[in-house]
């Protein structure tokens, strides 16, 4: 059953890719559309990786753009100035961001809840100011002339890898330890879970993928500007909104939210001003009526759906 499921998933994923390629070659999907699909994949990576920190481990971080920025700038520096192959640059960007995650994780973990949130936000801004003052990556002028290496296929593949790795992680003993830390740190410690270790681990893994997403992004846009909306707290909050709307602790929720909230603004380009009014209202309403997000801690899958229907049927028979 399990093997069959993964076979179906693989086929479906491959099919999506082939359909996109086919539509592109037929000219039905314009390059602009494919660009947006790549952006969807990049956002999926960002949102799922932040969900590991915020949703699964319960460590409220609003500095994800800092890790993203490290990956974006470091990889761009590597491909532009050192002519490193792109895949290697992605990995290096991820590793550097992951190391930054370790560096933030270690001290930040002494903080809880909203204090941690503010500290991570502060960290993100510090990264931005450092980039702003580093001439090697363009400083305040921004980093231009980055080669366009990011293709839809590469973004798509990286997104799949991210989702699979994080899903596997959270369903392993390591992920369960993270869940335990989120649910009740004292109880988790009493069961032998070293809560500090798992917080740092979640930060490092989340940061690694955010860095990889950054690398894909800088080689997608070909230009990085050290502005709050591109690598600062506005970006962090954008990612956070997607995580929250998709549901803390739901990977499928994150994927839906990332795709939906990437495509919708493109469709509503004329209403850009209203978008920034609707988003926050949506956020507040969701918090009031469904504080854990739309798909909180639940995963959407065919077998869950089948179970749900069977359950409903059985229930119907009973009554």
């Amino acid at each position: 059953m399990k093997r069959l499921n993964s076979l179906i998933s693989c086929t479906a994923l491959l099919l999506v890719y082939l359909v996109v390629k086919l539509l592109e070659s037929r000219g039905i999907l314009l390059p602009y559309h494919v660009q947006i699909l790549s952006l969807c994949c990049i956002n999926i990576i960002l949102v799922v990786s932040l969900n590991l920190i915020n949703g699964f481990t319960g460590q409220f971080s609003i500095g994800h753009a800092g890790f993203f920025a490290i990956g974006a700038y470091a990889s761009a520096y590597l491909t532009v100035h050192l002519q490193l192959p792109f895949v290697l640059a992605i990995i290096c960007g991820g590793i550097l961001a992951g190391l930054a995650g370790l560096a933030v994780g270690l001290p930040a973990l002494r903080l809880r809840g909203d204090y941690l949130a503010i500290a991570t936000l502060g960290f993100g801004e510090i990264i931005r100011v450092i980039i702003l003052n580093t001439d090697a990556v363009g400083g305040a002028r921004g980093f231009s002339g980055i080669p366009k290496y990011t293709t839809f296929g590469l973004a798509y593949l990286t997104a799949i890898i991210t989702v699979v790795v994080i899903r596997n992680f959270v369903t392993s003993d390591f992920g369960r330890a993270c869940l335990a830390v989120r649910e009740d740190e004292i109880a988790a410690e009493s069961l032998g879970v070293n809560s500090t270790y798992f917080k740092v681990l979640a930060f490092a893994i989340g940061a690694f993928f955010a860095g990889a997403a950054g690398a894909l992004f800088s080689h997608y846009l070909q230009y990085m500007a050290p502005t709050p909306s591109q690598i600062g707290f506005v970006k962090s909050i954008d990612i956070l909104i997607m995580v929250v709307l998709g549901g803390l602790g739901s990977i499928t929720g994150s994927i839906f939210a990332a795709v939906f909230l990437t495509i919708i603004p493109e469709l509503l380009r004329g209403f850009a001003e209203y978008r920034m009014i609707i988003y926050p209202i949506l956020l507040i309403v969701v918090m009031i009526y469904r504080p854990a997000g739309l798909l909180s801690g639940q995963e959407f899958s065919l077998s869950n759906l089948a179970k749900h229907f069977k359950g409903a049927k059985a229930h119907g028979n009973h009554s």
Partner: peptide, 10 residues
């Protein structure tokens, strides 16, 4: 806290 961020954006 998320609500407060939302209010700020709004």
């Amino acid at each position: 806290l998320i609500t407060a961020i939302g209010a700020s954006l709004l």
